Amino acid sequence: MKRLYLILFSIFLLGTNQGVLAAELRITPSLCAVAEDEELCSISVTVDFQAKDDNEYCLIVSGRGLVSCFSAKNGRSLQVYVSAQEDLSFEVTNSASGLQVAQTTLKVAKFRPKRHQRRYGWGFL
């Protein structure tokens, strides 16, 4: 009997999570690569948001605050210029309730350029 209740409760939770997944947030590009000696990643990011309802939403960038509020009717695309030293979180909240609806992250990666060795004719096959 307990097993039946557990299965029914799991199905209920899956059903309620589908409402949360009704919104989608994407950023392009999702990765910013900077050289090891550079401190900041400065980039223009396209933020695309789609929801299955006509509610009002707000875009918030972590550490930066509110960027814009908008209606989700037919989706929304914004250009946002950001500068960051580390990963940056983008989230969309419902403007009426303040609840987070969608979230994604701009990854900041540091790399060291590869140096090619010159052999000056000494290399063998």
Rank of each mutant, 00 (worst) to 15 (best):
K2F: 09
L4D: 15
L4R: 15
Y5E: 10
I7C: 08
S10A: 08
I11A: 04
F12G: 00
F12I: 05
L14A: 04
L14K: 00
T16L: 05
Q18T: 01
G19R: 08
V20K: 07
L21T: 06
A23P: 00
L25Q: 08
I27C: 02
C32V: 06
A33R: 14
V34W: 03
E39H: 06
E39D: 12
S42A: 14
S42T: 15
F49K: 00
D53V: 09
D53N: 11
N55L: 08
Y57L: 03
C58E: 03
L59W: 02
L59C: 02
L59H: 01
I60F: 03
G63M: 00
G65C: 03
G65A: 03
V67Q: 02
S71K: 08
G75E: 06
G75V: 12
L78V: 07
L78E: 04
Q79A: 10
V80N: 02
A84I: 05
E86G: 05
F90D: 01
T93N: 03
N94A: 06
S95H: 07
S95E: 09
G98S: 07
L99G: 06
Q103G: 05
L106C: 02
K107R: 13
K107N: 08
V108A: 04
K110G: 00
F111K: 09
R112K: 14
P113V: 05
K114L: 15
R115S: 13
H116S: 13
Q117I: 12
R118I: 12
Y120N: 12
G123I: 14
L125C: 13
